[in-house]
Write a protein that binds this DNA or RNA. Structure first.
Length: 486
RNA sequence: GGCUCCAUCGUCUAAUGGUUAGGACACGGGCUUUUCAAGCCUGUAACCGGGGUUCGACUCCCCGUGGAGUCACCA
């Protein structure tokens, strides 16, 4: 079987973190078997579609570096065009298809028109709730004769098409959850075609997944209970039923389905907060799925290789933001100087000079997210005012600190540009001097470091020398000596 | 409430009948060290409860309990 997975987002704004996870699993599954990953836009709710949402969605896919094989693609000029042999991939462009198959269902007696107003439906549901019954359509319009119905439709009355759920039960084997059974008494005669002529998700999904040859339907757990509706229709049409895999929900810390109220739901927000795409993919891609072993860091290729639907957990997963921070730092620390500069640039207000690049490289183990770089950079760009008392090491006094700084001033004057080209070289130069002169590390290194950074806590003096360069370093040392003498 | 699903440290998870129940984040201690970070070592911490099945259950079955999802002309 050729694996064809699909992601079917509705274009209603930003990309939900759960959508990303589903997309990732779709992608892993398709890629590992040489199959196809398809994106289909489900814009059948005219009121909810947001302009620009599709573009945004496609941009996010680019940002996380996963690519689909069919569906809408973003062109360089910002326009969208489709690729693939099973289009159109936007549901609002497939309306005729849905109409055709809705009509077919009605003709076969598998669906029927319904004229009930939403007011009546509300009343009906209230009554059912009061009697503690399952809320479902009471089939009032099912008793209408075909002639009556036709007459009312022709007179212009508003109507919908409902699925006529047959007697019996639906059983299916979820690739993640195993065998699931639903009695049809629990399945509502859901609406297939709305009064505006648009299909609902239920109909559109079945028609599209069939004609797009979808083999695996991966979606969130919230869809489990509507699966019988889909399967009933696949069977009515005589079409093959795809494999369903319902992914566990991503939960907020209160263990509820992650919603906008309870946490950061949008992938865009994570980027804005300064997380790296690789870290996000690693983190989200291993939420509910883990390649065996004691590792935590995986490349996307490793995830593709080891992904296995059978190993996906069925329980929901709470986002552990501290772990995301840790993971992000792991990726940050693995980046080279130029890469850090590239990634940090959008988050840094300073111009990307060599000093800034070096400072970013040194500070990357002290931050978790790109947004923290701006603050971390400040002490390098400009010496912050500090109390000269902090220049004095705990085991020494002001006079000693001053003396040591003057020695350092003299030493650093003599250091060549070549020595300033690497942290290691600077470290050896200073340490050799300390050994040669019979000095104590702390007496020299503490005041040196504080003088250079202007801070009690900072990177090593060697790193700071390297970042600042000779001239700025000397300036700061002179400043410290002067401060100690007044 | 009906239906469906789920259940290992606080959190993410490993374990597919036999382990001192492993790893990671977070937290505590230590080492390293001029400070911080990083790194290394280490500690605290879990099989929801009760019945079975079995020589043996975290693993299989049943019943509870708890949690979640879903019950729209939204997806």
């Amino acid at each position: 079987m050729v694996v064809r997975t699909r992601l079917a987002p509705s274009p209603t704004g930003m990309m939900h973190i759960g959508t990303l996870r589903t997309a990732l699993f779709d992608y892993f599954l398709a890629k590992q078997s040489g199959g196809k990953f398809i994106i289909r836009i489900e814009d059948t709710d005219q009121g909810r579609s947001v302009p620009g949402a599709v573009e945004n969605l496609l941009e996010m896919f680019e940002a996380v570096n996963i690519s689909h094989d069919e569906g809408p693609f973003l062109n360089d000029d910002g326009t969208i065009s489709e690729r693939g042999d099973f289009g159109p991939y936007v549901q609002s462009n497939r309306l005729d298809l849905y109409k055709k198959y809705s009509d077919e269902l009605v003709a076969k007696g598998f669906a029927y028109p319904c004229f009930c107003s939403s007011e009546r439906l509300d009343e009906m549901r209230k009554g059912q709730v009061a009697l503690k019954q399952t809320t479902k359509y009471d089939r009032r319009c099912l008793s209408l004769t075909a002639a009556d119905a036709r007459k009312r439709i022709e007179s212009g009355e508003s109507y919908v098409i409902r699925l006529k759920v047959p007697e019996g039960k639906t059983e299916f084997d979820d690739a993640i959850r195993g065998h699931v059974v639903f009695d049809h008494h629990e399945v509502d005669d859901c609406i297939l075609m709305k009064s505006d002529g648009f299909p609902t998700y239920f109909l559109a999904m079945v028609v599209d997944d069939h004609f797009m040859n979808i083999s695996h339907v991966l979606r969130g757990e919230e869809w489990v209970s509507s699966t019988p509706k889909s399967i009933i229709m696949f069977n009515m049409f005589g079409w093959d039923v795809p494999i369903f895999a319902h992914l566990p929900l991503i939960l907020s810390p209160d263990k509820k389905k992650l919603s906008k109220r309870t946490g950061d739901t949008a992938v865009e927000i994570y980027f804005k907060h300064g997380y790296l795409a690789e870290a996000l993919v690693n983190f989200i891609g291993t939420l509910g799925f883990n390649p065996s072993g004691d590792r935590e860091i995986f490349t996307i290729d490793e995830l593709i290789e080891s992904f296995d639907l059978n190993k996906v957990n069925s329980g929901g997963a709470v986002l552990n933001m501290e772990k995301l921070d840790w993971m992000n730092k792991q990726y940050l620390m693995a980046l080279g100087m130029d890469d850090i500069a590239l990634r940090a640039a959008p988050f840094v207000s300073a111009e990307m000079t060599d000093v800034v690049k070096r400072a970013l490289f040194i500070e990357r183990s002290r931050v978790s997210r790109l947004t923290e770089f701006d603050d971390a950079l400040r002490p390098y760009l400009e010496l912050q005012a500090y109390d000269p008392a902090i220049l004095v090491w705990k085991k020494a006094d002001a006079a000693d600190a001053c003396a040591q700084l003057e020695r350092m001033l003299a030493l650093i004057e003599t250091l060549s540009d070549a020595v300033f080209s690497a942290v290691d070289l600077l470290e050896s130069a200073v340490k050799e001097y300390i050994t040669r002169e019979g000095l104590q590390n702390g007496n020299v290194l503490w005041p040196l470091r504080v003088a250079l950074s202007g801070q009690e806590k900072s990177a090593t003096p060697f790193e700071t020398l390297w970042v600042l360069g000779k001239e700025t370093s000397l300036e700061r040392l002179r400043h410290a000596v002067a401060a100690l003498k007044t």
